[in-house]
Design a protein around this nucleic acid. Structure first.
Lengths: 239, 239
DNA sequence: CGCTATTGTTTTGTCAATCAAACATAATTT
DNA sequence: AAATTATGTTTGATTGACAAAACAATAGCG
């Protein structure tokens, strides 16, 4: 059933509404199969559905679909970015595994990815070395040399260091920041904190509306749409 | 079906033979369900089975069961050792996910674990910092300090360095080594190389028979039982 | 040796997911 | 507006996993 929710979720994004034919096409199922599954989902109050009518997710259905999407994206990103799997394979594997992975492991996987990026000993260079190790394990004794390299870079960075802090609203799409503080004195700040945007987490701006409102943010695998004043309550540091 | 193969495999180890009742107990299924599944597996030549008779895996069944076990163990170990998930949860999650994970991702996950151990920038210390990061993301800006620490340790190690090379047969149970070379001039060495024991891979000795023969080795998630002379053909370096 | 308890099998029935074909409705074209 | 095409639903059949109950075989005990 999760597959159906996910398909409907994506179709709702792409077109305004999901249609039986498209769901069937996406899941490679017969339309009659989809039709009866929809009745099932409607009974469970996960979709709004009347025969021949429009198909949309209910709030609860949307919530569940988003959870599935989060599991899916987390697995896929881990496979692609960390394990260096080609995106086709990663996508397929994520599809299969997304239904079985427990929430706590998804959380931990996300934290792992963040730590990997943040810690000066790992990061991009380390992942590239892993990639090299995968291709040619035998001669990856050069690791020592690369520690020195890593140190040099680090010391230089340390030297010229002027930690760049700014507000979440000022990040460009694609940029990431580590949350330093959230101004909980204001009510937008309160809401933001309740979403899980707290000191230490990594927030990535995915998109900006016209005049910078709303701010599309990804935090802990969840996609949020923040008001500009909410994004203004968050101070971040560039990694 | 993979669940059945796995259960039979483990029961064959524990007792000499698998019984319907035990399989049912392990998988929490009704004995009638198991009985019909066994017929199915027998048709596919994965188990040796006659009504009321002994249940054992065929060579092909054993092969498939070992693949499942490898996927299972790889996932579980990654969850426990890298993501720091408690073993109960890790075990359950591995059970659910083992049927969906593609072989290439298992391979990569194993390589990832090995690289994590081998690379002087990561290893145990790095994982401990990740653990700390999980518990208290907010104050893990201490990462910089810890790079210096890491460097000190490394330089000291570098200084007193006398890479310890020895033969695989001389490792103690539990010890790991990075394969430096395999003597393919001899026929035991040939066989060992065909198993995938090649320069660069990590080999862990899991157990030793009386007088050091056979040598139980784990390589790339596979468990092998090597003759002493086979283990003697492999030169390893302690990590 | 024969009785009884344990274990394994067969039969029967349920449930859920699926497809194919027949049928119904909506959308589009003429 | 009617005809045609596209889309969606219903019905019926199939399959596979499962359980309950009835039945069959084996093993252990007196």
């Amino acid at each position: 059933m999760e597959d159906y929710l996910e398909a409907i979720y994506h179709l709702e994004r792409e077109h305004r509404v999901a249609r039986v034919k498209d769901i069937a096409g996406r899941l490679k199922l017969h339309k009659s199969t989809v039709s009866s599954a929809l009745k099932n989902l409607a009974e469970r109050r996960l979709i709004n559905y009347t025969p021949y009518g429009l198909i949309t997710l209910t709030p609860e259905g949307t919530r569940q679909a988003k959870e599935v999407v989060r599991r899916h994206e987390t697995l896929r990103d881990f496979f692609v970015k960390v394990l260096n799997i080609d995106s086709q394979t990663a996508e397929e594997a994520a599809c299969l595994m997304e239904h079985a992975i427990p929430g706590i492991i998804v959380d931990r996987l996300i934290q792992f990815g963040e730590f990997l990026e943040i810690c000066p000993r790992s990061g991009k260079a380390w992942l590239e070395d892993f990639q090299h190790f995968c291709q040619n394990a035998a001669q990856t004794r050069r690791c020592e040399a690369c520690l020195s390299q890593c140190l040099e870079n680090f010391e230089e960075k340390q030297h010229h260091r002027q930690p760049q802090t700014l507000l979440l609203q000022d990040l460009q799409p694609g940029q990431k920041g580590i949350v330093l503080s959230v101004d909980t004195a204001t009510s937008p700040g309160q809401r933001v904190k309740e979403l899980g945007i707290r000191p230490g987490v990594v927030a990535q701006v995915e998109g900006l509306g016209p005049y910078g409102d709303p701010v599309e943010v990804k935090v802990k695998g969840y996609h949020y749409s923040l008001r500009r004043e909410e994004a203004a309550a968050v101070t971040v540091e560039l990694p």
